[in-house]
Design a protein around this nucleic acid. Structure first.
Lengths: 198, 198
DNA sequence: ACCAGGATGGACCGCAAGGTCCAAAGAAGT
DNA sequence: ACTTCTTTGGACCTTGCGGTCCATCCTGGT
């Protein structure tokens, strides 16, 4: 891979992706123009098309891939080890903190909603992201419950949906309350029975 | 209101809104052009600007308002009376059916994600929709639990987020499993303790 | 030192799409 | 029937933006 591309070239390419991702988060994919990207990266039109021959759609696809990686990375190391109730709580807090910090800017939203409709490859990126995410949650749910496979899967999906929903509401309203409530409610069935009740 | 507008005029205006809403659901707001709307409604450019002086953004705002109404309407009569566990189940099924039928086409997604970022008035429409929705859920949760106000509110928000999340996942993956799982999990704490356990 | 291939700059093109304008047709009141 | 306001048609303008092209500069290998 990266055939015929010097270190400088690769750096420029990466710079474009990162800047485009930021713009996309800020203004949405639809509002992000090639000129915006050009201005933000101090590059020329020809460079954009040099590194992304398909043009705009090519850049957006790269952004999608990049953002998909970021989404999971922001949840680490928690997402990788959800073996105890405490670790689930840690994960919950990490997600909450991350999106609180991001505020209105949501990578997933732009990708799924805006790109997903037109670009089929962006869709497949989103799908594989969800799959990976779900798999991690399934492992975690398995570790802390004794439910069957089907119940575990449903639980994991409800948690994933809770995150998505909370983020959507955050985007729409600017309030983190929804994400907080949704996350808390979604993982609370995983809490072990309290000792005092025993 | 509707000053200086004949019945015919109002009908045309409405036709434009409905058609634009359909296009927006299908292709997303960003991909919907005035010419598309024109073609779909058999109108002329001048009519578009006659009924929506601000142009495109004006139309999109009207669509937002229209769609917001539809969202709640699709949940009636269930949403209006969530006083029993059975009625909650009925509501859950109604939501599930409705979005299953819509498939990939989501009114909310386009509005919140695409319009919300640029148009402030679209945001306020979304916000008031959420408020109304949440209020209905709060009333329902209150009716079937004995929790305090704060807990009720959090529960309602988690349910609302579950719907949103499920719909996002439906859009992204095409599968209704997520919405199903999320809804089920979100309202299951409202289920009364089973008689057999008593 | 040379050269091939990559990196960069920026002028230029074409078109789609939002928006303007004026004139004609149709309704509604008197 | 006359007038006035609304409705409609569609030509036309403007511009933003994706995309092309070629000339120039730089870098790395021999």
């Amino acid at each position: 891979m990266n055939k015929g591309m010097t270190a400088k070239g690769r750096a420029t390419r990466q710079r474009i992706i990162v800047a485009a991702a930021m713009l996309t988060r800020d203004k949405g994919a639809a509002e992000t123009t090639l000129d915006d990207v050009r201005a933000a990266t101090a590059t020329s039109k020809s460079q954009l098309f040099h590194y992304f021959p398909e043009g705009r759609s090519d850049i957006l696809a790269a952004v999608a891939e990049y953002e998909a990686g970021q989404v999971l990375e922001a949840q680490q190391p928690h997402l990788g080890d959800l073996s105890t109730w405490e670790s689930w709580q840690g994960w919950r807090q990490a997600v909450l903190d991350h999106y609180t910090e991001l505020g209105q800017k949501c990578p997933l939203g732009s990708l799924t909603t805006e790109l997903g409709k037109s670009s089929p490859q962006a869709r497949s990126i989103a799908t594989s992201l969800y799959d990976e995410w779900e798999a991690a949650l399934v492992r975690g749910v398995e570790a802390v419950t004794s439910d069957g496979e089907e119940a575990v899967r449903r639980r994991a999906r409800s948690i994933l949906a809770a995150v998505q929903g909370g983020v959507v509401m955050l985007q729409g309203t600017g309030r983190t309350d929804y994400l907080d409530a949704a996350l808390t409610a979604a993982i609370s069935p995983l809490r072990p029975v309290t000792v005092s009740a025993e």
